[in-house]
């Protein structure tokens, strides 16, 4: 196994781990604001690592460019969506969870 493949493997596994973390956060966090974090942070990082891992395997520069374009678009989209969701939640009067009122 070449170094290239090794780095790629590590990157893919790490990326998958971040997705797992994102899902766990999605399921376990107490309110919509905290779940936002779970989604964006882990997801973007996860996808980034996957894209990096896959880019090392890609057959052409065009494919690499496409991979990074996808990553960029997803980051842009999920940043915007999180902002919108948070704003909507705030305007609808949902108060953020704090340690006191949780359990």
């Amino acid at each position: 196994m070449s170094t290239n493949d090794l780095v790629s493997c590590v990157s893919l596994v790490l990326g998958a781990f971040f997705f797992l973390a994102g899902t766990m956060g999605m399921l376990r966090f107490p309110d919509v604001y905290t779940r936002l974090h779970a989604l964006t942070k882990a997801d973007n990082l996860g996808l980034g690592l996957l894209v990096f891992g896959l880019a090392l395997q890609a057959e052409s520069w065009l494919a690499v460019a496409k991979l990074f374009l996808v990553w960029g678009l997803v980051m842009l989209a999920s940043t915007t969506c999180c902002h919108l969701v948070a704003q909507a939640a705030w305007q609808a009067g949902i108060s953020p969870w704090s340690r006191r009122d949780g359990q």
Partner: peptide, 28 residues
């Protein structure tokens, strides 16, 4: 999370997660 909600925003957020992960699956 789409199941459980509890608010519409949570469900929307979960479907967003779905979109991102779907993208990753397709790339893989």
């Amino acid at each position: 999370r789409v199941w459980r909600g509890p608010t519409a925003l949570d469900r929307m957020l979960a479907s967003q997660l779905f979109g991102t992960t779907g993208t990753a699956i397709l790339l893989l």
